Simulated assay, not measured.
Amino acid sequence: MKMITLGTTGITVPQNAFGALPVQRVNMDTAVQILRRAYEGGMRFFDTARAYSDSEEKLGHAFEGMRDKIFIASKTMGRTPKDFKEQLDTSLRLLKTDYLDIYQFHCVDQCYRPGDGTGMYECMLEAKEQGKIRHIGVTSHKLDVAKECIESGLYETLQFPFSYISTEKELELVRMCKEHNMGFIAMKGLAGGLINNSRAAFAFMTQFDHVLPIWGIQKMSELEEWLSYMDQPPALDDEILSFIEKEKSELIGDFCRGCGYCMPCPAGILINNCARMSLMVRRAPSKAWLNETWQENMKKIEGCLHCNQCMKKCPYQLNTPELLQKNYEDYKKILAGEVQV
């Protein structure tokens, strides 16, 4: 198993890390069992966030008394110094620790800097001086903001969506981080469910020696699949490369990544799922996508206000109303049996 060092942090861990957003969807006992098994299987880096409901609390229960054996990264959605400090103290209390290895500004719309008038970066510096955090990171879905954060030299890690269907623009971010000796934490390594081949997803990441993928895990069966690669990591061989090229050719063009930056929708449309429903029913097949609840959700597309707020907020510059309509028309054909999936 390849070991990854996250830039200047000095944090060195197996290139196989745990994304703890999904454990908020399972009960405490199940989450603790999964998290402890992840540690037993060799995972050492665990990424969570104050915004992930009780995810931090579950990590705190799972790893109490073994803080020095793992690395924990969390995030703040705070946009004022007051909210920042409250969220940090809450995270530390729930995680049952007195420090975080990496603390990240979560889903930022700007690159916080010292003296910018917000006081936010100063909060990070103060928390670091107090020993509450060890390294400063940032997460984003916006390419221009991510580039600015890299070039600023103020952050030690960047967390950004990255997978084998990422475009040249995302690959440029990875290269920039390498040039700036900055760790890259890859979220959405399965493209929000569009990728269903874990071997290919894992093998793709192995070509980057500063990229740490955090796999979102909520089932023991999913965890065991990732852990199986600890001793036998899949190689990026000709077979997998050919498979990835085929996947990319099928997904070329405009498609919704499901990041949710467009939300909320004034018409109540669940854009981050409805705008990619055609892909989800084919690539992540589940009868649940065709149940009454999702039929009602898709029908809301008929009430689109064409206000274009979603287009303005989309970091990928998609024509979201057009995507919604295309997906809705396809969905209706699937329900009518005119299209087989």
Rank of each mutant, 00 (worst) to 15 (best):
D231P: 01
L6K: 04
K82P: 00
E57R: 13
G131P: 00
T12P: 05
G119P: 00
A20F: 06
G19Y: 10
Y121Q: 07
K287D: 15
P321I: 14
A51Q: 13
K128V: 07
D68V: 09
E122P: 06
S91I: 01
E156H: 03
R50A: 09
T12V: 10
M176I: 09
I240W: 00
Q87L: 11
D254I: 01
L100V: 07
V341Q: 08
E129D: 10
M182A: 03
E86N: 13
A73P: 03
Q15E: 10
L324T: 05
I301S: 06
P114K: 06
M43G: 04
V13D: 13
K169V: 10
S198H: 12
L88R: 01
L212T: 07
K128P: 02
P22L: 15
I165N: 04
M43S: 10
Y52P: 00
G10T: 06
L6S: 05
K178T: 03
R36G: 09
Q340P: 01
P285D: 11
H135Y: 03
T90I: 05
I72V: 14
T80A: 14
C256P: 00
G41P: 00
L100P: 01
L279V: 05
I11H: 05
L125K: 08
Q325H: 14
C107I: 08
F71W: 04
C149Q: 06
S152A: 11
G253M: 09
D109N: 08
K132S: 03
D144H: 05
G78M: 03
P81V: 11
K147S: 11
E296Q: 14
I214V: 15
M124L: 06
G337L: 12
A31M: 10
D209E: 13
E247N: 06
S198M: 13
